[in-house]
Design a protein around this nucleic acid. Structure first.
Lengths: 262, 262
DNA sequence: GGCTTAAGGTATGACAGAGAACCATTGCTT
DNA sequence: AAGCAATGGTTCTCTGTCATACCTTAAGCC
């Protein structure tokens, strides 16, 4: 370090704390809407979160195979090594199982009762801003329903009808999954990829919240009627009605959650 | 590397292409709503994008000082070294200026005409999914307006009125900024942090698009009337009216953009 | 005028993560 | 039975990024 001969550092070494850059959370300011952290968490957690979404949304149902490690790591833009660490965690939680060889892969296991000693769930919930989630969800859902009703192609009609039918035939333990898929379909048909992606995120959180409250058959029937009404409005090209119905539908779930989690 | 003595690699080294992990974009699949890349771009670009948002949204107007490097790097969760590389780029583009010493800092310069040889803008636009942006924006805006109208505190009323007044008094070259701030205020008052953050992002993109089309005084007056109507509806606690007006307002901008960018 | 303070400017060691290449296992095909 | 192909499992190296410390500059304060 022979840059500049400054031999007389007479100051009483109290300057120890020059710790720039690091440290904890900075003071919140008015710019926080924009200045969110560039890399959420540590990359590892982010990846874990996304795989968990895949499972929570039921996009890969129990018994099915996840995309191969090579594919997943490419999609998530992380190294296979790190992806494998993520999968390792899920294996330890008995959520997935890996099989080697051709036609092997990582398979989703059926949900076990308490994933991790019940306390873990509560802690996660506490970390979620429930009000934020519910409000944001309503906005996205209503918006998606409206957009769908505005520009509906023949192919979209079919997908929508198919998704609705699937919820009708769903057995109790599969209802959450089919419900999710119906809403996800609406979001995708909105014509905004960003909307669909955001909805996927918020829905995963929502499902996690829903897992904390009882599943009421009474409520489920009501929900099913509302689904039908929303889809009908969309198929009728009635955006306002679709939005209104969807808002009502979301309001129901929201009220339930606010009640149980309050 | 003495793990397993495999001395006879007789296969004709043609196996050169085992390139796992890396490579270009993976084939798109039905899971793309969820499996977005963990770390958008290379971290550097992401940070650049966010600082640019700060400028494009007018959250730090020309002549004002950005937060210090140490603060910014903490907010963005990147090292000061990397942040400085980002700022270096902006300095080279004559968008900001750094002054040393106490009460120094990084200052925003007034916008120069063509940021980078005009071709650069067009290229960016091509990379933006305009339809996605417009649709997503409308959904967020309408949703925010509705939520605001539903739960409006006295303090929120004041902020809203203030923001509206600011747009009234704005001169032409400052209008975009005040307009942005008004909408951003609505988003923040929606009670969903996520919504506000998402709006900030989409609005930055929108402003970039708007920079590509002429600013019509005629349209601006119309816009101003709509602002007043939206705010009035919100202050009247009329969610439906607020949503309706906002959708109309967004529709106007959308039509303009679709026309010019088609 | 000299000290203090807050900002930008610079250098460096440590480490996380990506990338690439391997190995090992399995089931299908020939 | 042999070979092939697709998957999970492992290990290596190298680059990018971070954290930390320090220097330099300039404005205000005593």
């Amino acid at each position: 370090m022979a840059t500049s001969g400054r031999a007389d550092d007479t100051r009483p070494a109290a300057r120890a704390g020059d710790r720039e850059g690091a440290a904890g959370d900075p003071a919140p300011g008015p710019l926080d809407s924009v200045l969110r952290p560039v890399r959420a968490g540590n990359g590892f957690e982010e990846a874990l979160e996304q795989i968990l979404q895949l499972l929570r949304l039921g996009l890969v149902p129990p018994g099915e195979r996840l995309p191969s490690e090579r594919e997943l790591s490419q999609h998530l833009r992380i190294s296979r090594v790190m992806l494998r660490e993520v999968l390792k965690v899920l294996q330890d939680q008995d959520m997935v199982e890996s099989r080697r060889g051709r036609y092997g892969g990582t398979f989703v296991l059926p949900r076990t009762a308490a994933p991790d000693g019940s306390g873990e769930l509560r802690r996660r919930i506490a970390a979620v801003d429930v009000e934020d989630t519910l409000r944001f969800r309503e906005v996205l859902e209503a918006g998606a329903a409206g957009l769908c009703a505005e520009g509906l192609t023949a192919e979209a009609e079919d997908r929508l009808r198919g998704a609705l039918d699937a919820t009708r035939g769903a057995r109790l333990e599969d209802y959450r999954r089919q419900d999710t898929l119906l809403h996800l379909t609406l979001a995708e048909l909105s014509g905004s990829r960003t909307l669909a992606a955001q909805y996927a995120g918020v829905r995963a959180t929502l499902n996690e919240l829903l897992d904390c409250i009882p599943l009421l058959v009474r409520n489920l029937e009501h929900s099913q009627q509302q689904h039908a009404a929303v889809v009908e409005a969309v198929l009728d090209r009635a955006p306002d009605a679709a939005r209104e119905m969807m808002r009502e539908h979301c309001g129901g779930t929201a009220a339930l959650l606010r009640g149980f989690l309050a």
